[in-house]
Amino acid sequence: MPQVEITIGGRSFEVACQEGEERYLVSAAAMLDAEAAHLSAQIGRMPEARMLLMAGLMLADRTAGLEDQLRASESEVNALRAQIEAAAARPAQRIEVPVIPQEVHDSMAEIAARAEALADQVEAQT
């Protein structure tokens, strides 16, 4: 079982972990050390056990908040998935697009031609 030396609050500890878990242990120790440094800056020097307890409680509080956010996000994702599934289960809607009849196109073209002819006549007279 590998032994990893970690430093928390300026104090070194040798900790055993499972093979391959060393980087996770070092990462966790770095988070705990950051909390311990924050505590030391605020409160000053304190007994090792108290410092580790307070730093652990601060990390646990942060973790609980993140777990609450995760649960809320998972709930939102599940609701959105249900909406997508419900939408996919509905039969396709028929959408009718209005089409202008050919007669209207022809009439508009005739009116445009007459308007151009009138404009030509007015232009010729001036």
Rank of each mutant, 00 (worst) to 15 (best):
L39F: 03
E21I: 01
A36I: 06
A29Y: 05
G10F: 08
I43P: 02
A49H: 10
A112C: 04
S75Q: 12
L70V: 05
R90V: 02
L66G: 04
V15A: 07
L57K: 06
S12N: 14
P98E: 09
S107T: 14
E116P: 01
A109Q: 12
M58S: 05
L39E: 02
Q83H: 06
E22N: 09
A28E: 03
L53P: 01
E21K: 14
M51G: 00
R71E: 05
I8T: 04
A112H: 12
E116K: 11
C17N: 09
L57A: 08
P2A: 04
A86V: 02
V99C: 09
A112I: 04
A117V: 10
I8C: 00
Q69Y: 06
A89S: 13
T126I: 10
H38I: 02
V99F: 08
R94A: 11
G65A: 05
Q69R: 15
A119K: 10
Q102D: 13
E35V: 01
L57S: 08
I95E: 11
R81H: 09
I43Y: 11
R90N: 05
I8R: 02
L80K: 11
A37P: 00
I100R: 15
L25V: 05
I100H: 11
R11Q: 14
L118S: 05
A49P: 02
I100N: 13
E48I: 04
S27I: 00
E103F: 10
